[in-house]
């Protein structure tokens, strides 16, 4: 399939003009030859048109669609590779751009965008039009983390006020749970795994959508993938556990349907923020911590894992820390003990 409306990279200084050109070209694309899929994370209607059917199928399998009451028009995304539609390859910028300056230039044009040089890949979204484009040079050039969190940035951009993609694990029981926060390696994924192995629920071990209402705060799933260290999985499920090749982080990406008891809940009413700490103590211990301490643990990854919207991210994270009780969890070596400690906390707070 060829398109006559191939965008041409403008002068390097005008990244916003280039981004706008991608959106205009996408709007003119004949959709008949593209592969269409629907997604509804948090009930958010998203229509995706893909050039690569394998990518479309992966996204459909790995994005968690859940019911919701989001009064939003459909967001339409074009996930395309230049070779398949006759576009010029994505602009590879040769000059340095400071991230805040890049974001400011896009915001001034009413756009949100992320440029990933390694692919190279452009993602552009117009909140006004609710249209987005992702452009790579050829099929399969999306970044290696895409399978673990497909369309992550677009979902971040399309969510309504009061809801935000959060970099946190979750674990709960009977529809109530806690948000697990902290830097990479702090024990979020292992704590989630300990919980689900003991029969608890989760809405994600790495990302979830958090929605703050006036009376309650809830977490919703966004992806159906758990990302787990093989050593951790074998400690919990035994030495024979095998989930195939590891991903770019050396982790297994485990589709929740592959687990014996699929643990993905539709929602968890959040009762607390918990900061796990690998302590190797005899018995897991939960202790209250000041809210600003939780913010300092949560904010860096929760804000910087997304390419823009830092100020809103800080405010949202701070509000979460103000509204929910905050704790640290000193982790023992025993997964059952860890799960019992969390279930006990949720029970006390529910």
């Amino acid at each position: 399939m060829r398109s006559a409306a191939a965008p041409r990279p403008p002068a390097i200084e005008d990244v916003a003009a280039y981004a706008r050109g991608l959106l205009e070209a996408a709007a003119a694309l004949p959709r008949a030859g593209l592969h269409r899929r629907w997604f509804s994370p948090f009930g958010l209607p998203i229509e995706g048109y893909f050039t690569d059917p394998a990518y479309a199928d992966m996204a459909a399998a790995n994005i968690a669609s859940t019911p919701g009451n989001v009064a939003r028009d459909t967001a339409t995304l074009f996930l395309v590779d230049a070779a398949s539609i006759g576009w010029a390859p994505p602009l590879h910028m040769a000059e340095e751009y400071h991230r805040p300056q890049f974001n400011a230039a896009m915001a001034a044009a009413g756009l949100r965008s992320w440029y990933l040089p390694a692919a190279p890949m452009w993602q552009v979204y117009s909140p006004g039009l609710r249209v987005g484009v992702q452009l790579v040079a050829t099929r399969g050039r999306t970044p290696p983390w895409e399978s673990g969190g497909p369309l992550r940035t677009f979902i971040h951009w399309a969510l309504p006020d009061g809801a935000r993609l959060c970099h946190a694990g979750t674990v709960g029981v009977d529809g109530a749970g806690v948000l697990l926060v902290g830097a990479g390696g702090s024990g979020k994924s292992g704590t989630t795994l300990a919980g689900i192995a003991a029969g608890l629920e989760t809405v994600g071990d790495d990302y979830c959508i958090v929605a703050m209402g006036p009376q309650s705060i809830e977490a919703r799933p966004v992806f159906r993938i758990l990302k787990q260290d093989p050593g951790g999985v074998r400690r919990v499920y035994g030495p024979d556990a095998d989930h195939g090749p590891v991903n770019w982080q050396g982790k297994w990406e485990i589709h929740v349907s592959r687990l014996e008891r699929p643990p993905l809940a539709e929602r968890l009413a959040l009762k607390a923020i918990v900061m796990p700490k690998v302590a190797l103590v005899e018995r897991s211990e939960i202790r209250p911590i000041p809210a600003p301490l939780a913010l300092r643990a949560f904010m860096p990854s929760n804000v910087a894992q997304l390419p823009d919207g830092e100020a809103e991210g800080v405010r949202f994270t701070a509000e979460l820390c103000r509204r929910l009780p905050t704790f640290e969890l000193l982790l023992s070596r025993d997964p059952d003990d860890i799960a019992a400690a969390i279930a006990g906390l949720v029970g006390r707070l529910s």
Binding site: E96, Y97, W114, Y115, P117, A118, P144, S301, A304, Q305
Partner: peptide, 24 residues
């Protein structure tokens, strides 16, 4: 003062990332 967020916030979208893995 805390610096642990500075590297990620300031990751230059072109040059400061690993070529194989990318930002962040």
């Amino acid at each position: 003062s805390y610096d642990d967020m500075a590297d990620l916030i300031l990751a230059d979208p072109i040059h400061d990332v690993d070529e194989n893995i990318g930002w962040p």
